[in-house]
Amino acid sequence: MLEGKFESASLMKRLVEAIKDSVKLCNFNCSQTKGITLQAIDDSRVLLISLKLDPGCFEGFRCDKNLVLGLDLESLSKVLKQGNNEDYLTLIAEDAPDNLLVVFEDPKKDRISEFSLKLMDIDSDVLSIEDMDHDCSITLPSSDFAKVARDMRTLSESLQILVTKDSVKFMASGPIGTGSVIIKAHTDLKDGKESIKIDLNKSVNVTFGAKYLNDIVKASTLAETVTIKLTNKIPALFEFKLQGGYLRYYLAPKFDE
């Protein structure tokens, strides 16, 4: 039996909203030691989502037997919208489940809502992702990155990112003209989360599809900062750290034909 209780429904609500436009059907893998993990690839095979929710992400977590919960994220989103952000959220499944039970309790315990969601058999590709060495790593406020990705998409369907020792330059060039945004490394002593950190082994010049970057920045509601790891000509890693877990996106680059 699986019983995972979140202190508040808002984490799961934000997670599903962040990924449901990229992937529709997902297998949630549940185990006592690893908690809940998920790997899903978008239909175009360009963007991969990797989620880890350690047992420590939960107020209570129990999973007697490893389980795979095949879920339609559109349906899960509909059910999660029925709960309030500050409700407790508990996910419950039997050992060979046909359904996932989703329970919301308001903190005053005078209202309990229960939903049963049908599970699906989902046959999906799983890719093995080894730890990669990257040419550079950038950590910046997730809202800053979201603004650049959204703004620059209005100019071009591609976003070029150039990283040097102390700055990151985002460039877009399209039918109406060109634009660039330069972000410089700095340390904010008052609020560390506002700092911009660049670790560089080698300068990087990579280009990504703006549409995918706009999907990725939907996760900026989950973490105040995002870490972007880039290497020339290989997929980039975008990581949003969660309390006791992470949401990672791997994005394949664009290149000159």
């Binding site: 175009s44 095979r45 590709d125 591609s158 599809g209 034909e257």
Partner: peptide, 14 residues
């Protein structure tokens, strides 16, 4: 014109 790569060129199916 730029071409979009897929992840399948970089990662193997497990």
């Amino acid at each position: 014109k730029m071409k979009q790569a897929t992840l399948l060129s970089f990662f193997t199916r497990s």
